[in-house]
Every structure is written in C-alpha cells, then in structure tokens.
C-alpha cells in the first residue's frame, strides 16, 4: 500500500471525487430547506430549488413591467461594462508604469516610492472620496476598480520586468537594440503573460470593489440587485444571482487563461515540449 501522499486519482475517479463535495453540499441544502419549509411553508431564508427556478424565470426571461428590460440581462450588461472598462484601464496603466518602473532605473527612482505608498491604501476607504469627486454615476464605480487594482498590479509587473535576467538586456544591447526596442521587443512581450496572470489574481478583488460600489449607489447592476432585494429577504433572487456572479467570474478567468495560452505559448513551457 503506497503512502497516502502518493495516491493520485486519475481520469473518471478524479472527476467523481471533485463532484462528491458539491453534490453533498447541494443535498445538505435541499434537506435543510425541506426541514424549514415543513415547519413554515412561507420560509424565505432557505428557498427551495423550485422557488429559485421560478424567480430565475421572472428575472432572466421576462421583461420588468416598469423598465421594459430583462433584469438579469440589464444587470449583467451594466456590471460587465463597468468591470471591463475598469480592468481594461488598470491593465493599460499597469503595462506602461510596470514597464517603465521595471526597466528604467530613472523611472523606478521617481515613481517607485509613490506606487508603494498608494498600494497600502485600502481602496474601499477612498470610495467616499470617489463618490464626492466623480459623483454617484458610472465613473466612480469604474475608478474604484481601477484604483483598487492598479497599484498592486504595477508592483507585481514592475518586479517581474526587473527580474528579466540582465544577460538578456545586455545581449539585446550588443545586438544593437535601443532602449525603445528593448522595451517593446524584449520586455513588453515577456510582461504580457504576467499581466494576464496578475489580472486573473485581481479579478476576485475587482468583483468585491464592483459589488461594493453598486451596493452603495446604483440603479442597475448585479451588486445593486442583490442589495436591493435584501430588503425583502428575497433569498430566492440573491442565491441565483450569487451563483450567476460566480459563473461569470469563472468564465472571465477561463477566458484570460485561454487567451494567454493562445497568444504566448512560450510562457507555458509544459505545452511546448
């Protein structure tokens, strides 16, 4: 009998093993929900799967009589737009600052301390400032994502660029490369897969910032909706929305990982051999 640490599940066994806890959790929920509904048929805390399905049907397939829009679609579109613009701006800024700080000692000396100082500020703490400065509209939500992600990502990317072996930089110079050519053809391509990886790590915090901003001031969005229906204890809406947000997060993460493998095969050497 091998040691426990050497037993590796393979193929179907591995998938089965992964499914067991998920199914167990669902079963636990169903039993608990059933138990509460036997005591009180109007229980709102643990809605049945049937009740949630009915709500999803209303939210996802039927237009809201007041606005004429399908709530789930409108909320998803608004949230993803804020998220996309926020992480897009953060990524572009990170690329420029990260390359500058990582590659050029002059820029590192100038901006390094500032970025390090900004990175320690908890982003949610500046949310009131953003609301005051940018108002309660779209801008403040996008800026919160931007402010929340950028300092961390700049520090990560500049450290990665600074860790490019000096040999490579010297080699490029002996081949006649200028600073610009080294930045664009040596540092930038090696920074891009790291930027995507850093974005993937930042998606979790990005959702936190987005939902916080939407919860406080908004009239559409996934975060807005779950905090709105919280007033009516509408768990039958909240739970499907949370599941939906999780699915979106997984899809976004998967898309970024696939993008990186497709664009930068050299950065995933296991697949090269």
């Amino acid at each position: 009998m091998p040691r426990l640490m050497n037993i590796r599940p393979r193929g179907g066994g591995r998938i089965l093993l992964g499914l067991v806890p998920i199914l167990a959790l669902l079963l636990l929920y169903a039993v608990a929900s059933q138990a509460r509904h036997t005591l009180n048929p109007n229980d709102k805390i643990l809605p049945t799967f049937a009740a949630m399905a009915a709500q999803v049907n209303i939210m996802a397939l039927h237009p809201d009589p007041q606005t004429g829009q399908i709530a789930l679609v409108a909320d998803t579109a608004a949230s993803l737009r804020r998220m996309g613009i926020g992480i897009g701006l953060a990524a572009i800024t990170t690329l420029v600052l990260g390359l500058g700080i990582g590659l050029l000692p002059l820029v590192r000396a100038g901006l390094g301390p500032l970025v390090a100082a900004i990175a320690v500020i908890p982003p949610i703490a500046v949310l009131p400032i953003l609301f005051i400065v940018f108002g309660l509209g779209e801008t403040s939500k996008i800026v919160l994502i931007f402010v929340g992600l950028t300092p961390f990502m700049v520090r990560d990317l500049s450290a990665h660029v600074a860790a490019i072996p000096e040999e490579q930089l010297v080699k490029a110079q002996t081949l006649g490369a200028s600073t610009w050519v080294v930045a664009v053809r040596v540092a930038l391509p090696q920074a891009l897969p790291r930027l995507i990886e850093s974005l993937r790590f930042s998606l979790g915090p990005a959702w936190v910032f987005l939902i916080s901003a939407e919860a406080i001031a908004s009239d559409v969005g996934l975060g807005y909706r779950i905090f709105l229906v919280r007033r009516y204890l509408a768990m039958d809406v909240i739970i499907p929305y949370v599941v939906w947000i999780s699915l979106l997060a997984v899809a976004l993460d998967w898309a970024l990982a696939t993008l990186s493998r497709g664009l930068f095969p050299w950065a995933h050497p296991k697949r090269l051999r």
């Binding site: 490579q168 010297v170 080699k171 002996t174």
Partner: peptide, 20 residues
Amino acid sequence: AEPGPDRGVVFQRYSVFPHM
C-alpha cells in the same frame, strides 16, 4: 561604458530570448 553592437556576447545562461 555601455554594451554595443561592436561586441557580441554569449553568456552561460539566459543569452537567448525565451519569447522568440
């Protein structure tokens, strides 16, 4: 005091660009 194209170099490691 700056590397230039008049001097070629091969190091023990990291001489080539991994992304090309």
